[in-house]
């Protein structure tokens, strides 16, 4: 494996980490209004399952972005300037979500919380739908000209395939979040989350399966048949384990599906990172978009040394907060009233 291939895989791994970890964060945010309907304590149970970890989960995206910049600057430059409005939308959503999660409990007032819940909703639904759409476009190709600039209109990015990709990540993350909630909660919230898992399983299998088969047939390589298989296997496992009340295995199942789906997408792109729909001559691939061997070598050392440490301490965080949450464990609101008495 040469350094370009190594970095392509590593960025794939960073995005996989992001989708696995933020996948259920988005799912939790998407399901919060449904599972918490009518009870603020229940909404807080749902939100606090990701309380200590969501911020670190999000850093996988920041680091993936930094790694793209360092290893494939041409990819970073063309993609980020090309997907301008999509990224603007994503950034607004992420900003709203961060502030809404952190500020929700700061003021003890129903209206304040309602606004924060809207922020959490927007910040979870938009990225969950948008990431699949963006990545489907990366597989399908974009109108990239000889200057490595994306030209054409936004309609080029709204193909049925790309829109199906958005739908696929949207519903997959919702299911992943529901399975995570079954694993992390107890009592009534867990029972309701199980019901949502059952409700989502078949539509997820249809949409994600459809997108997977389309990707495989149109863009896939030989070996990606295998990851398509494990993606399906993951969903089957999730469904069977959920029915059997084996919450940990159900979560392993959806995690496997998210990993496989990312591998399928990234594997179908290889060796391109941004194929051009105008001419194959303008394709950006891992060789014409990469940094120099020296930069890649330095960054490889940094990644090989730092990533295991990150995995260990992030894993430890999940261990520390492994307890299931129930409504009884949620303390009374400690926020200040909306209007000061001073």
């Amino acid at each position: 494996m040469d350094l370009q291939q190594f970095w392509f895989v590593l960025i794939g791994v960073l995005f996989t980490g992001y989708f696995v970890l933020e996948g259920f964060d988005f799912g939790v945010g998407m399901l919060m209004p449904i599972l918490g309907k009518g009870s603020d304590t229940r909404r807080r149970v749902v939100l606090n399952t990701i309380g200590p970890v969501w911020d670190a989960n999000e850093v996988w995206l920041i680091t993936a972005g930094g790694a793209m910049f360092a290893a494939f600057p041409e990819w970073y430059a063309s993609m980020f300037s090309g997907f301008y409005l999509a990224l603007l939308l994503l950034l607004v959503a992420l900003i709203l979500r961060i502030c809404a999660i952190e500020y929700r409990a700061k003021i003890n007032d129903p209206k304040w919380r309602a606004w924060c819940d809207i922020g959490i909703g927007i910040g979870s639904w938009i990225p969950a739908l948008a990431w699949g759409w963006v990545f489907a476009n990366l597989v399908r190709g974009v109108p990239l000209n000889s200057d490595r600039q994306m030209v054409g209109s936004v309609w080029d990015l709204l193909s049925p395939y790309a829109l199906l990709g958005g739908l696929a990540t949207g519903i997959l993350f919702a299911l992943h979040g529901a399975v995570f909630l079954v694993l992390k909660t107890g009592g009534e919230v867990r029972v309701d989350a199980q019901r949502i898992v059952r409700l989502l399983l078949v539509p997820t299998a249809v949409i994600v399966g459809g997108f997977g088969v389309w990707t495989q047939l149109a863009y896939g390589a030989g070996w990606t048949w295998a990851v398509l298989g494990t993606a399906v296997l993951g969903l089957v496992l999730a469904g069977a384990a959920n029915a059997a009340g084996r919450d940990g295995w159900a979560f392993v199942g959806t995690t496997l599906t998210v990993i496989s789906a990312t591998a399928l997408i990234v594997g179908s792109m290889y060796p391109n990172v941004l194929p051009s729909t105008i001419s194959p001559l303008y394709d950006l691939n891992i060789y014409n978009a990469s940094s120099t061997p020296y930069t890649l070598k330095v960054m490889s050392w940094a990644a090989l040394l730092a990533t295991p440490v990150v995995l260990v301490y992030q894993g430890w965080t999940y261990w520390v907060f492994r307890q299931r949450l129930t409504v009884e464990q949620i303390p009374a609101p400690t926020g200040l009233p909306l209007i000061s008495k001073d």
Partner: peptide
């Protein structure tokens, strides 16, 4: 990017 990306990636990673 060959230069500037490195400290940004290190910042994220470390």
């Amino acid at each position: 990017g060959d230069i500037f990306g490195a400290p940004l990636a290190l910042e994220g990673l470390i």
